[in-house]
């Protein structure tokens, strides 16, 4: 039976649910938007949004893998974007980007250090830094936007940092260079997670930190590293978003942390830790970006954005849960 063959597959690959949801949604969007959603320009936009949200999502997935959570990534994203824009007009954009990513990593280190040293739940600590760094971002810009003058946005550095698309031929608008960074990060992190000792330790800590500790794993260090990587990736996402838009204000990345967490959950990551799927989480980010873009092209009033997004997330999560329940039944 097809059933019998499919069940173990779903059991082993928690990300299958989100792939099915993605396919269903793509078919639905394409069928109902009269070409407004499924055109090359729009797809290219979706991929760009997926790239920056996806980088953030990968980082959150790693932290979730250790059994912790980081809800400050939206603020980190904003801070890094602002630092990049502030520095890019003064020094080489590459140096600016490096500095911005380092600030992201530092925010991650701040979170990780507090969580592991004080034993305070990461939800509380990162809620604090969510507010601290959002407040700082708004204070630093004092209501204005940082931007790079349009005529200065040339050169390879800008191009590779999300400033333009590549592979554009014919009517296809191409893929934003930010997407390359996403693919690169996905490949590296997947290798680290599946094939290297750190990945083994990370999942062990998420599965049972007590057991990992008893086997000599330095649980605190594993968690700290995950937070640092998470901050750096959110920072890189912010840089690429800033590179694409060329400007940002203090609200950059606001509420993106919720999308990143939703992407992880939709993608089959267990919030309790120990089981994550990076490709699934990225698919989650893609689905959320697609939904958003569908609502835009269908001219749904922005007020309904969040409501609809939330409803779809809840239903997608329920569907995914049903699927997994079915797969685990004998």
């Amino acid at each position: 039976m097809a059933d019998a063959a499919f069940k173990p597959l779903v059991r082993k690959h928690s990300e299958i649910g989100i792939f099915l949801i993605a396919i269903l949604l793509i078919v639905f969007f394409a069928a109902t938007s009269e070409g407004r959603w499924n055109n090359s320009y729009n797809i290219s936009t979706i991929l760009q949004i997926t790239a920056t949200l996806g980088l953030m999502t990968l980082g959150v997935a790693l932290v979730v893998g250790t059994g912790e959570i980081d809800i400050s990534v939206g603020s980190t994203f904003g801070m890094s974007a602002l630092i990049y824009l502030f520095l890019a007009v003064r020094v080489d954009p590459f140096i600016a980007a490096t500095a911005a990513v380092c600030v992201g990593a530092l925010i991650g280190a701040f979170n990780g250090y507090l969580v592991t040293k004080t034993g305070t739940p990461s939800l509380i600590i990162t809620l604090g830094s969510l507010m601290i760094f959002r407040g700082l971002a708004i204070a630093l810009t004092s209501g204005f936007a940082f931007s790079i003058p349009y005529k200065e946005r040339g050169g390879f550095s800008y191009f590779i940092l999300g400033g333009d698309n590549m592979f554009n031929f014919g009517t296809f608008a191409g893929v934003n260079t930010g997407f390359l960074w996403l693919i690169f990060a996905l490949v590296v992190l997947t290798v680290v997670l599946k094939l290297m000792p750190y990945g083994n330790h990370l999942l062990a800590v998420g599965g049972s930190s007590e057991s990992a500790h008893s086997r000599g794993i330095r649980v605190d260090r594993v968690k700290l590293k995950a937070f640092i990587i998470c901050g750096a990736l959110a920072g890189l996402g912010g840089v690429l978003e800033a590179g694409k838009l060329g400007s940002a204000d203090g609200s950059m990345g606001r509420l993106m942390e919720l999308q990143a967490i939703a992407s992880c959950v939709l993608g089959g990551c267990l919030l309790a830790g120990g089981r994550i799927s990076l490709i699934g989480a990225l698919m989650g980010a893609f689905v959320l970006s697609s939904i958003q873009s569908y609502l835009v092209v269908m001219a749904v009033r922005p007020q309904w954005f969040m409501v609809l997004l939330g409803i779809i997330v809840v239903f997608a999560a329920l569907g995914d849960k049903k699927l997994r329940h079915w797969a685990h039944k004998h």
Binding site: A204, G207, S211, R215
Partner: peptide
């Protein structure tokens, strides 16, 4: 304690003392 349910037997067996193979210097 001592075993992580979410990991395979092989991964649990070597948890914390994983044997490594270096490929271009990366473990």
């Amino acid at each position: 304690v001592g075993l992580c349910d979410n990991l395979s037997i092989a991964r649990n067996f070597y948890l914390g003392r994983e044997p490594m193979k270096k490929i271009v210097g990366i473990p």
